[in-house]
Simulated scan of single mutants.
Amino acid sequence: MPENLIEELKTMLIEGLRLEDVAPEDIAPDGALFGSGLGLDSIDALEIGVMLDRRYGVKITSGDERNPQIFASLNALAEFVASNRTR
């Protein structure tokens, strides 16, 4: 998986979700994005879905049973984007 995709996603999350006091190096590629990890919630997941669609043409629906795996970590999200992107 391209390292620059991980960095792009870090920047997208910080800017798109307006994560104050979070720097790219604060986001561990294998760390949890939700709950005790980065502390994101279901509204953030919806916003991430919209950003991924706009930027990469990747569709994530709220009812997708793979969502817990897709959003498990930054690495998991990057793998999903890399294998499903249309842009």
Results as ranks from 00 to 15, higher is better:
M1T: 12
P2W: 00
P2A: 11
E3I: 05
E3G: 07
E3P: 07
N4F: 05
N4I: 08
N4T: 13
L5G: 11
L5C: 11
L5Y: 08
I6Y: 05
I6L: 15
E7C: 03
L9F: 10
T11G: 04
T11W: 00
T11N: 10
T11F: 00
M12L: 15
L13N: 01
L13A: 01
I14P: 05
I14A: 03
G16K: 01
G16M: 02
G16C: 02
G16N: 03
L17C: 05
R18I: 01
L19I: 02
L19R: 06
E20P: 01
D21E: 13
D21Q: 13
D21P: 01
A23Q: 14
P24H: 10
P24V: 08
E25C: 04
I27D: 09
I27R: 04
I27F: 08
A28G: 14
P29W: 09
P29C: 09
D30F: 09
D30K: 15
G31S: 15
G31K: 08
A32L: 15
A32Q: 15
L33A: 09
F34R: 03
G39V: 02
L40T: 01
L40G: 02
L40M: 04
I43F: 14
D44C: 09
D44W: 00
A45V: 09
E47Q: 14
I48C: 02
I48P: 00
I48L: 06
G49Y: 07
G49K: 07
G49T: 13
M51D: 02
L52C: 14
D53G: 11
D53W: 04
R54N: 13
R54K: 15
R54H: 08
R55D: 11
Y56L: 11
Y56N: 14
G57I: 07
G57W: 01
K59T: 15
I60Y: 03
T61V: 04
S62V: 08
G63T: 03
D64F: 01
E65S: 13
E65P: 05
P68I: 01
Q69H: 11
Q69K: 15
Q69C: 02
I70M: 11
I70L: 10
I70G: 12
I70E: 08
F71A: 08
F71C: 09
S73D: 09
L74M: 12
L74N: 09
N75K: 12
A76G: 09
A76Y: 00
A76F: 00
L77N: 06
A78Q: 04
A78H: 06
E79L: 08
A82Y: 07
A82S: 14
A82R: 03
R85Y: 06
R85F: 03
R85S: 13
T86E: 11
T86F: 00
T86K: 13
R87L: 09
